Amino acid sequence: MSKDKTANAASAAATPFSHTSEAFASTQAVQDAADFIEIDQILTLRRMIVRAHAPKGTVLFLHGFPETLMVWKGIATTLARDYDVHAFDWPGYGQSSRPDLNRFSYAPKEYARVLKAYIERAGIDRSKLVIYATDIGALPVLLLALDEPTIARQIIVGDFAPFDRPQYMWENLQNLKAEPTASPTRAYMNKTSDEILQNVHRRGLSPAEQFDLRIDVQQDMIRSWSRDGVTSADAFAHYYANFTRDQHYLEANLDRLKTPMKVIWGEKDIYIAREMGIEFAGKIGVKLDVLPGTGHFPHLQNSKQTVEEIRTSFR
């Protein structure tokens, strides 16, 4: 894997020959498109860029907990026929930096700053950009959009907690929001990391609806759980330590949210109930698309649906 901290990743395109050769070329393109980009003196992000021959626009994917950029690999392969596709690991996840808490707060507002810096350093044309953000990736992009409504031509968000409504959240997530329950919950998540990585995407789904992760995605999440003395659960807990503050800020400033928006939600999301999505979509005046039989990870459970959401955004 090359490590280029300043330049764009090497471009790669999916060139249609036979279906078999196209799939091979696309998979190789994704592997070759991973590199590193420096955001500032303390943050370096692992990123993936897959480029189209004649891009109609750019897609930027923002992952959630406990994911890494590898969850977008298959979707990027498909979309790269028409669009340049970007994804990166948030600080504290994947192979990106994991600074000490004294140097980086891991707060949603801090992630918004990271997102802005990435878009600028990657040289992305905002007028042709669609951002797809899920889980912990959604609040940061909305916070950024408050100040910069032209950050993208459209933002797609879903399965996250824009407002401070603990009653719509899974119990462990409620517990992370404040002490005295936050620290024991963080410790429990670290202790049970194997179970989380194995089953987080299955919870709330019937046996017939449950699915397995691709082995490369699973392995990357396992390898990336703990690095430089910080686990993904640690980063998640630090995020939640500032979560309520940043939720309140978003809700108090919703009238400044002018970027075209789309909201989607898994019908069977047990982590963040769809009532949260209903309230958010209603307050910003957009339609909520509830995905039948789908849990908290629509992009993993039904990648074809995610691809179609993106294509529709460019029409």
Results as ranks from 00 to 15, higher is better:
residue 98 R to T: 00
residue 310 I to E: 02
residue 175 N to V: 03
residue 129 L to H: 07
residue 115 L to C: 06
residue 99 P to A: 07
residue 47 R to S: 08
residue 234 D to Q: 10
residue 295 G to C: 05
residue 184 P to D: 13
residue 249 Y to K: 07
residue 249 Y to C: 01
residue 239 Y to I: 02
residue 151 I to K: 04
residue 154 Q to T: 06
residue 184 P to Y: 07
residue 272 I to Q: 04
residue 194 D to Q: 15
residue 144 L to S: 11
residue 121 R to V: 07
residue 88 F to C: 05
residue 224 S to H: 04
residue 226 S to K: 11
residue 137 G to M: 10
residue 234 D to M: 05
residue 54 A to D: 15
residue 168 Y to S: 02
residue 259 T to A: 11
residue 117 A to R: 12
residue 54 A to N: 15
residue 114 V to H: 02
residue 115 L to H: 02
residue 98 R to F: 10
residue 61 F to Y: 08
residue 187 A to D: 15
residue 238 H to A: 13
residue 123 G to M: 10
residue 105 S to D: 13
residue 23 A to F: 00
residue 133 A to W: 03
residue 244 T to S: 06
residue 247 Q to N: 13
residue 60 L to W: 01
residue 144 L to P: 06
residue 58 T to A: 12
residue 178 A to E: 12
residue 293 G to N: 14
residue 106 Y to D: 03
residue 217 V to F: 09
residue 109 K to L: 10
residue 184 P to G: 11
residue 64 G to C: 09
residue 130 V to K: 06
residue 67 E to H: 09
residue 110 E to G: 10
residue 107 A to W: 01
residue 75 I to H: 00
residue 239 Y to T: 06
residue 244 T to V: 14
residue 16 P to G: 05
residue 205 L to N: 04
residue 115 L to N: 01
residue 134 T to G: 14
residue 216 D to T: 15
residue 302 N to P: 03
residue 313 S to V: 01
residue 37 I to T: 03
residue 25 A to T: 12
residue 299 H to L: 08
residue 76 A to K: 04
residue 267 E to Q: 11
residue 123 G to S: 12
residue 313 S to L: 07
residue 193 S to H: 15
residue 219 Q to H: 10
residue 214 R to D: 15
residue 5 K to W: 00
residue 309 E to V: 09
residue 137 G to P: 10
residue 33 A to F: 03
residue 287 K to V: 00
residue 182 A to D: 05
residue 158 G to K: 01
residue 163 F to H: 03
residue 234 D to F: 03
residue 216 D to K: 00
residue 69 L to P: 02
residue 311 R to V: 05
residue 299 H to P: 01
residue 175 N to H: 11
residue 117 A to N: 10
residue 293 G to Q: 09
residue 186 R to W: 02
residue 287 K to S: 13
residue 304 K to Q: 15
residue 280 F to H: 05
residue 292 P to K: 10
residue 171 E to T: 14
residue 41 Q to D: 15
residue 107 A to P: 05
residue 254 L to W: 01
residue 106 Y to V: 04
residue 281 A to N: 08
residue 288 L to F: 00
residue 186 R to N: 13
residue 245 R to Y: 08
residue 200 V to G: 03
residue 37 I to F: 03
residue 158 G to M: 02
residue 280 F to C: 06
residue 249 Y to L: 11
